[in-house]
Design a protein around this nucleic acid. Structure first.
Length: 866
RNA sequence: GGGCGUUUAGCUCAGUUGGUAGAGCGCUUCCCUUACAAGGAAGAUGUCGGGAGUUCGAGCCUCUCAACGCCCACCA
């Protein structure tokens, strides 16, 4: 990278691969736990081993990398910890699907063989997604990469489980859980999604025992009736209250069950009477506990009717769906089906496979969440942990304040096996880090919810439980957590609770929540919809920096979802190309050596002062916005500065008169400011620049800051006048179709001091032939333009159309007058003059004066023309 | 049922303490002016969802209505 020539069009891919390799070869991303510099650390939200890179990762990783690179340039010791999640159910599903293709199930292999197979697969795919992240330019420390099932994480998981158990915060018990008959496992509440479905409400008549009459209940799930243990009515319901304490006879089976009273029953819903099936409905389960009722299971783990005394023989073994149909038929032929109505209701679905959940009575492990949630609520309320944007705090708090116990056991094989051991003969249970006696004790077959281990991610990756580990000491707690709002409950909340419980510190101080990536119609991207965009394709087509810049530009502070389409990334590509070419121009036009390129304030032109002033403002706002996580704003500011200020004006002016040192200084520092967003192109150009380099690359240079010595506001204002003049003259040329080759003469009535400085600019940029200064020039056959109080006359014999010119002037005057009217109205208002801040009033007065002057100028001009 | 978000130019969206609206794409006209046509110059386009209020002044604050979207809850 020593040649100073740059190719004419920017070849993003070639450059990016080369540059990333350069950083890797130089170990640029490696964090030093022994460094004395202040620490900045981020842990990656570990992508699933099963995963391939998608747009969500692209956004998430880009934002993290921006923060990481920014802080690295602020000269902090930066650790970005990469790694993957074993993703229990998701991974097991993939492997089982592969087996199914061979006509096998996991049971054909047995646990050991199955795990062997899964490990092979996981090892093969573990680094794939992190390798893909490198295509995004991710500057994480691969030497530290972790996996939630590696030895360190497994030890942390065991320790946490045992400690929580010993503190009484983990318990095992028979409760109703969300059971997925396809995954063959319990899942937690947050893994259950509800979908609205059209169903039926069946009203079934239960005959009273030992007397005439019947009670009619309403149900959406008649097949569960065989597990009924009571009929419940509201004690305040006059229709039924006398029946409480009596019994009824169940249709089809003849079993006798009591009628009970419970406030939970809604008098106005259905028939006002409710069958109670504790083993298959969460609410009924609660009612059953209150009334000390038995729990009768009639549906098994596969979602089929059980073969037991409660289920009629002809239904045994049928699926839930078949059994429902058959049950209804049987009820009908027994003439106990009173009525069927359409009923829209919500049905729980497994988040992983969308199978309808079966609420099932089951023996599972739970974490008692209330005591853990309290400090987690406190940490957010007191501001120890801040959410950005702030509104997510409310969301988090609401969930935390209504937290329910967390079912953590899964009937899977892939995951952390629960460290509970049962005596083979006595059944005695021991919860411990190790099996007390492998000959006599057998480990619990269940594994833990994936989120149990990812909940420990910020500290289990830093050496914990060894709190003297250098990484733990240097880099924990981490600084910022970056993620989408979709996993606040699954992951963020659990990291906070676990972090506080086990390290007594919040695992991070800021949670930066961004939106989700959607397709151009606002639809969530999914493989099944076929609307996904592959970031790898985008990188191939437009380049990684283009992808990063575009995403960043679209990522606004409010954390709105981001709609994308392929073509949107042309924006970033075009910008990269612009940067490349502008840099090419600069490098081609530098004749001085790096030692000669010194800023010499005494030689600055007003243009130099203007661009230095603009850059200085740019550096200031960029830093402020990065500090406040307004990352999209940063992209906008940098884009605007580079295109509208540096390229459109300063580079153009430099073709007339150049200060090489300023040209190079501003470019180099702009590249630094941009580096966190577009790391490769900025590094590639920087390497070729004739500047002093005492770091390996641009990535560890100092991040530019506001510098008082570059405050040149007065000159900047003058320069704006120059630009306005040039634009006004160009407008005249365009308006009257002055041929490109033709030069114009202009007569300026005042402000000679400034204009005489910039005659070469006018000549080159507005194709001016001659400049005269005259207070009252002859105005015939001329066009005019006004810039503040200055009038410029442009004789255009042969081209000028007087009416057209009058109309043009009139239009400008109308616009100015409208503005003036509004300001005048304000200034006439005593309330405004007295009530508004002094500066605002002063500003309005100045504006008024300026507007009046300019309007008078135009009026005079029009008068002369007509 | 509870909570949150969105509504600004044809499209996608910015708009940080209230001071009188911007970008990208698209569109019109001109230009391959030796950094860049993935470019340059000039230009058109908005009763800031409706209504009311606070204020000297509202895209921004308050209330209300409407449409769309999301989250939580889960009355069988």
């Amino acid at each position: 990278m020593s040649n100073t020539e740059l190719s004419t069009t920017y070849n993003a891919r070639e450059t990016e691969n080369e540059i990333y390799k350069f950083w890797e070869d130089n170990n640029c991303f490696k964090a030093d736990a022994k460094s004395s510099k202040p620490a900045y650390s981020i842990v990656i939200p570990p992508p699933n081993v099963t995963g391939v890179l998608h747009m969500g990762h692209a956004l998430d990783e880009t934002l993290q990398d921006i923060l990481v690179r920014y802080n690295r340039m602020l000269q902090k010791e930066v650790l970005w910890m990469p790694g993957c999640d074993h993703a229990g159910i998701a991974t097991q599903n993939v492997i089982e699907k592969n087996l199914a293709r061979e006509g096998k199930s996991r049971h054909d292999l047995g646990r050991e063989k199955f795990l062997e197979l899964t490990w092979d697969w996981a090892n093969k795919h573990k680094d794939r997604i992190l390798e893909q992240c490198k295509l995004l330019g991710a500057s994480f420390d691969m030497s530290r990469r972790r996996f939630t099932l590696d030895e360190g994480c497994s030890n942390a998981v065991k320790k946490v489980f045992v400690d929580l158990y010993n503190k009484g915060l983990i318990y095992k018990g028979n409760y109703i859980v969300n059971w997925c008959p396809r995954c063959q496992s319990a899942i937690s509440d947050v893994e259950t999604n509800y979908e609205t479905e059209d169903g039926h409400l069946w009203e079934i008549s239960y005959a009273l025992k030992d007397e005439m009459g019947a009670i009619v209940i309403a149900t959406t799930r008649p097949e569960t009736m065989f597990g009924d243990v009571a009929i419940a009515v509201n004690p305040k319901d006059y229709k039924y209250k006398d029946l409480i304490g009596k019994s009824c006879v169940m249709p089809l089976t003849g079993r006798v069950i009591p009628i009970i009273g419970d406030d939970y029953v809604d008098k106005s819903f259905g028939t006002g009477a409710l069958k109670i099936t504790p083993a298959h409905d969460p609410n009924d389960f609660e009612v059953g506990i209150r009334h000390n009722l038995p729990q009768i299971k009639v549906i098994d783990e596969k979602g089929c009717m059980m073969n037991n005394e409660y289920v009629p023989p002809q239904l045994q073994g049928l699926t839930r769906e078949e059994a429902r149909k058959k049950t209804v038929e049987m009820l009908e032929s027994n003439q106990v089906l009173v009525r069927v109505t359409q009923h829209v209701h919500n049905v729980g679905k497994c988040q992983r496979c969308n199978t309808t959940i079966e609420p099932l009575l089951s023996r599972q492990w739970f974490v008692k969440m209330k005591p853990l949630a309290e400090p987690a609520i406190e940490a957010v309320k007191t501001g120890k942990i801040k959410f950005i944007p702030e509104r997510w705090e409310k969301n988090y708090l609401m969930w935390m304040e209504n937290i329910r116990d967390w079912c953590i056991s899964r009937q899977l094989w892939w995951g952390h096996q629960i460290p509970a051991y049962y005596h083979n003969k006595t059944g005695e249970m021991v919860v411990a880090l190790e099996n007390p006696d492998p000959n006599n004790y057998t480990q619990d077959k269940d594994v833990l919810d994936t989120w149990f281990s990812s909940g420990l991610w910020p500290f289990e990756t830093m050496g914990w439980p060894d709190t003297s580990h250098p990484d733990f000491k240097k880099f924990y707690p981490t600084t910022t957590l970056v993620t989408g709002f979709d996993i606040i409950f699954f992951w963020v909340a659990r990291m906070i609770t676990m972090g506080l419980e086990f390290t007594k510190q919040p695992p991070f101080s800021t949670v930066y929540i961004h939106g989700l990536i959607r397709d151009e119609h606002g639809q969530k991207m999914s493989k099944s919809k076929g609307n996904t965009i592959d970031p790898v394709d985008l990188i191939e087509k437009y380049g990684c920096d283009a992808l990063r810049f575009t995403l960043t530009y679209l990522c606004t502070y409010g954390g709105q979802d981001i709609k994308i389409s392929d073509e949107k990334f042309e924006f970033g590509r075009n910008f990269a190309n612009k940067i490349w070419n502008a840099s090419r121009f600069v490098l081609m036009n530098i004749s001085k050596s790096k030692d000669e390129l010194k800023l010499e304030p005494e030689k600055y032109t007003i243009a130099d002062k203007w661009i230095l002033n603009e850059f200085n403002k740019c550096a200031k706002t960029v830093n402020e916005n990065l500090e406040n996580y307004r990352i999209g704003e940063v992209a906008t500011i940098l884009y605007d500065f580079f295109r509208s200020k540096y390229c459109d004006w300063y580079v153009e002016l430099s073709k007339i008169e150049k200060n090489e040192a300023v040209l190079v200084y501003v470019l180099e520092n702009f590249l630094r400011l941009l580096h966190p967003i577009m790391p490769h192109i900025t590094e590639a150009i920087w390497q070729k620049m004739p500047v002093k380099k005492d770091t390996i690359g641009i990535l560890n240079t100092q991040y530019p800051q506001y510098d008082k010595k570059f405050d040149y506001n007065d000159d900047a204002v003058k320069m704006e006048t120059v630009f306005e003049t040039i634009s006004a003259l160009r407008n005249v040329r365009a308006e009257f179709n002055v041929p490109l080759g033709a030069k114009i003469d202009i007569i300026i009535d005042k402000n000679k001091e400034l204009y005489s400085q910039i005659i070469p600019y006018l000549e080159r940029l507005a194709k001016v032939n001659s400049v005269k200064f005259e207070t009252n020039p002859a105005a015939e056959k001329s066009a005019f333009c006004t810039v503040n109080d200055t009038k410029i006359t442009i004789p255009l014999a042969g081209l000028i159309d007087l009416n057209q010119e009058i109309a043009r002037q009139q239009k400008k005057m109308d616009k100015l007058e409208k503005e003036l009217n509004s300001i005048q109205a304000r200034l006439k208002n005593q309330n405004f003059v007295q009530g508004a801040p002094k500066e605002v009033v002063e500003k309005a007065k100045t504006q008024k004066d300026e507007l009046e002057k300019e309007i008078n100028l135009i009026k005079e001009t029009i008068k002369k023309l007509s």
